[in-house]
Simulated scan of single mutants.
Amino acid sequence: MQKILIPTDFSDNAWNAIDYAMQLFRDKRCTFYFLNTYTPVIPSGRFMAKMIDGVRIVDAVRDASEEGLRKTVNRIQSKYGKTGHTFETISSFNLLTEEVKDLVDSLGIHLIITGTKGASGIDEVFMGSNTVRIIKSTKKCPILAIPQNFDFTTPSEIAFATDFNRFYTTSELSPLLELAEMFQATIRIVHVQQGIKALSELQQFNLNMLRRYLNDTEHYVHTVSELSSVSKTLEIFSQELNIHLLAMLNYQHSYMEQMTREPIVKRTAFHTQIPLLVIPELGMEGVADPNPEAEQEEQTINY
């Protein structure tokens, strides 16, 4: 996790995610890429002005984006002083999800950190529309979603939710293991069942392989009965065991997919009460190699 991308719209919600990231990686040297995208409405037609006080609308919005990014870095410096991190700002005239995908490929991003907030609508109730769109569109990089009002807590208890129906590769487990190693955390593997029953042969094999991967990390396996929904079950499990971070893989028929498809009434309560690490189905590919010929507008600042 040496290259970390943090999208920001300069809201309190976005700052909370940045603040969490600064504390999470306070002892690790890494590069933070702060991204702000803008898509100004361009007036068309001969009766619509393209200038405001002599300044083109696109230029004005771009200048505001770049100024917001500068203020963000200054705010970090004011609060944390010399961090040992490298900060790069990227202002882009693009859609957020498209720019995120491009940067993951061109820069070799290892982790995306984003703030979450509830809104109206099906996807939005779960964790915020932008976060859901990034999760659905990003296939090569894990995403760490930070709840709007969550105060940083050292993640010494990490839950990994799985049904053991899929084999896990080292590239997929790498973010989970790295965080556990950074904070000497305990990993609690949680399996939600509709009625407790014995694992199938395939599930038992995948569990054995998972425990082999976690051999050097303190871990426990918990099997719990599903309550009204998977999300509610994981919420209560996290509360009772004082979990600081919940991790899960995002693939077809996974818990993550089930939760995004649950009826609104069943999943509003979950609302990402704790940070959620979503790991895409990386397989053996891992993370994309960086492309040194990236053309985004970047400003590098070392502290």
Rank of each mutant, 00 (worst) to 15 (best):
K3Y: 08
L5M: 04
I6V: 06
P7T: 04
T8Y: 05
S11G: 03
D12S: 11
W15E: 12
D19A: 09
Y20K: 04
A21E: 12
M22E: 13
L24D: 01
F25L: 02
R26L: 03
K28Y: 15
T31C: 10
L35V: 09
V41N: 08
P43C: 03
R46W: 07
A49N: 12
D53K: 03
G54N: 05
D59E: 14
R62E: 15
E66K: 01
E67G: 01
K71S: 03
N74L: 14
K82W: 07
H85I: 07
I90F: 03
I90S: 01
S91K: 02
S91Q: 06
L96V: 04
V100G: 13
D102C: 10
D105N: 10
D105C: 06
I109R: 06
H110L: 01
I112H: 04
D123P: 02
F126G: 00
F126H: 05
V132H: 04
K136N: 14
K136H: 13
T138L: 11
C141S: 03
I143Q: 01
I143L: 14
Q148K: 10
F152T: 00
T154D: 04
S156K: 11
I158T: 11
D163Y: 09
N165E: 14
R166D: 09
Y168G: 00
T169I: 03
S171H: 15
S174N: 12
S174V: 03
P175C: 06
L177G: 10
M182E: 12
A185E: 06
A185M: 04
Q194R: 13
Q194A: 08
S200E: 09
E201Y: 14
N206Y: 10
L207V: 10
L210F: 12
L210M: 15
R212I: 06
T217W: 00
H219T: 12
V221I: 13
S225D: 14
S225I: 14
L227M: 13
T233S: 08
L234Y: 07
E235V: 11
I236T: 11
Q239V: 08
N242W: 09
L245V: 00
M248R: 02
N250C: 07
M256A: 15
T260I: 14
T260F: 11
T260E: 10
R261A: 08
R261P: 03
I264G: 00
R267V: 01
P275A: 06
I279G: 14
L282T: 04
G283R: 05
G283H: 08
G283N: 05
E285N: 05
P290S: 05
P292N: 05
E293W: 09
A294R: 09
